[in-house]
Amino acid sequence: MSNVISASHLTLAYNKGRKEVIKDVSFTIKKGEFVFITGPSGSGKSTLLKSLYGQLKPSEGDLVVGGLDLVNVKQKKLQDLRTHLGIIFQDYKLINEWTVAKNVVLPLMIAGYSVEVQNTQAQRLLKHVKLAEHANKFPLELSGGEQQRVGVARALAKNPVVILADEPTGNLDDYSSNVIWDLMENACQQLETTVLVVTHKIPTVFSLPYRHFIIENRGVYEVH
């Protein structure tokens, strides 16, 4: 299997390199793998994730995602890469003035799909996350668990190469959390999507084989 994510001697820092969060780490993640990244609060989990979708430029080292070198990437190429990523946030990051259906098809809208295709896909995706009846509601009319399912549906909309999830169940109850884990497991199993989840706690009920990295003292270590 080919590498989808590859980091080599990667250093991530804020304040123009003055505040290092991750230092000199190397790892690879292959297509179709399910990966958990855990670690204490403030250890740099979210920072690592941000770097993977190009929000934070590496200070040193190499970082390649989906074949694209994120150290020397041009804005246009970065935009292209992002259209092949499915990103899930702890705070959902839904667009509150848009309906649930419109939020879900955002990646399709960006890719230039027709309105008919968008509508069909919105119905399919919302049915998949069991929110079909909420298509015309606005995000703030839904519960936290439901909003996160909208976020997952949006992440799956364009069959992404990689799903990057930042504490996707951080604010949810057990039932909602299990629904989210199921959806991500299915995506990984059925579509061979690489899933990388940053979380403070690995779910106890998890059926897929997975890899587990811990971030500690600015390093990233794999747990065997």
């Binding site: 992002r82 839904l94 848009w98 960006i110 949006r154």
Partner: peptide
């Protein structure tokens, strides 16, 4: 700003 940021994260070009 928030909408534009979310759209940017998902790869929307500037004009969109």
């Amino acid at each position: 700003e928030e909408r534009m940021k979310v759209m940017e994260i998902f790869g929307a070009p500037l004009m969109l």
